[in-house]
Design a protein around this nucleic acid. Structure first.
Lengths: 206, 206
DNA sequence: CCTACCGATCGGTAGG
DNA sequence: CCTACCGATCGGTAGG
């Protein structure tokens, strides 16, 4: 507005040019998909020419790799931040909150992580698979602990883990960070839903 | 094998060439994504040249449109086949079974439906959105009926519907039609999980 | 960060 | 269903 030049994307201070490229790439990859996004389009959003991007990055796939990597970091850090000494119910709630927080806080990165990671190849792809497995293992440990303590009641821990992760994972499709539901309310809904699914409260009626 | 010519894709009898193109397109779109699949690659899998495809179809997008359309048909038909006069619990189970049956029966089509429909544009895209909404409305009616009858106990019918659909939708990511779990067993797991999540059995303990 | 440019490949058409 | 071919666009490089 006013006298400022028509620079569409103003960089937040402290953000490197590279971070800005990644941010905009995340937006475009999310909206159009990795392969439907051209480097020229990405450059245009940043007010520069396609070739200039290569002063900051090596390749298009590197962008995807780094976006997916950052999301995987965030999810894994969130899961590993869940206190092991808390009760299974509290741990599950913390896991859910963390998952939703990551999605809400970086919906573009998260969406690209869930939707476009298959377009990675070689070791990068393998690296993603490993971290997804690690994330799933964190949730599985919580479910197993709940079954062991009698707080949960499920027939098959692996299937229960898979279904719970399914419930959480799909949320990137519809969760709107600028939506009406605040994180804590959404966490409460999700937690109650998942706890019921895991058979919590079957023994102890309220 | 034997003396048969090296025709990699043998058409099932009664299947038109066009159906065969759609089938193979579904496989490739699922594996590589819509934009990462070239018409030449598709043609090669069918032992013909890229240009020859256009004797059977008008455009690449038409392929996507028809694949997504067929999947939407299948899901909607499944949901509408659930008997309205059954109990909410039975209706939910039937909905779950139908959903899983569609995915298991046509995993390629279903995966493309969930993953690639955003690459449709204009009226085709709108058409998909309408049918997704209709499918969701079918599930919502079941959840609402269960709440009304006292069989289910949820705080918010819309959120509960959304989370249940999330649990079901993600299954295209991992469900393996050639996997160990037969449909009925998987249906039983899912149904128990979702019924618990919806608060069924909270009042009446078994 | 720019201009100029590269070879490759894309979806699709013409004409048989 | 083929050969031959089209304009457009792709990711990326050279050289400044």
């Amino acid at each position: 507005m006013g006298t400022t030049p028509s620079n569409t994307s103003t960089a937040p201070s402290g953000t490197s040019r590279r971070d800005e490229i990644l941010r905009v790439a995340g937006e475009l990859f999310r909206r159009h998909g990795y392969h439907a996004t051209s480097m020229r389009e990405l450059a245009k959003r940043l007010n520069l020419r396609g070739a200039s991007l290569y002063a900051h990055i090596d390749s298009k796939e590197e962008l995807l790799r780094e976006i997916v990597d950052r999301a995987a970091d965030a999810f894994l850090a969130s899961a590993r931040g869940v206190p092991c000494d808390a009760s299974p119910v509290a741990r599950l709630e913390a896991f859910v909150r963390g998952h939703l927080r990551v999605i809400e806080g970086q919906i573009e990165t998260a969406a690209v992580f869930f939707h476009e990671w298959t377009h990675l190849s070689g070791p990068a792809r393998q690296h993603v698979v490993e971290r997804r497995d690690a994330y799933q293992a964190e949730l599985r440990a919580i479910v197993a602990a709940g079954v062991a303590s009698g707080d949960f009641d499920v027939e098959d821990v692996d299937v229960a883990t898979l279904l719970t992760l399914s419930t959480l994972n799909w949320s990137y499709q519809w969760l709107d960070p600028r939506g009406r539901l605040p994180l804590e309310e959404l966490t409460a809904f999700y937690t109650e839903y998942v706890l019921g699914a895991l058979g919590a409260g079957k023994g102890a009626q309220r």
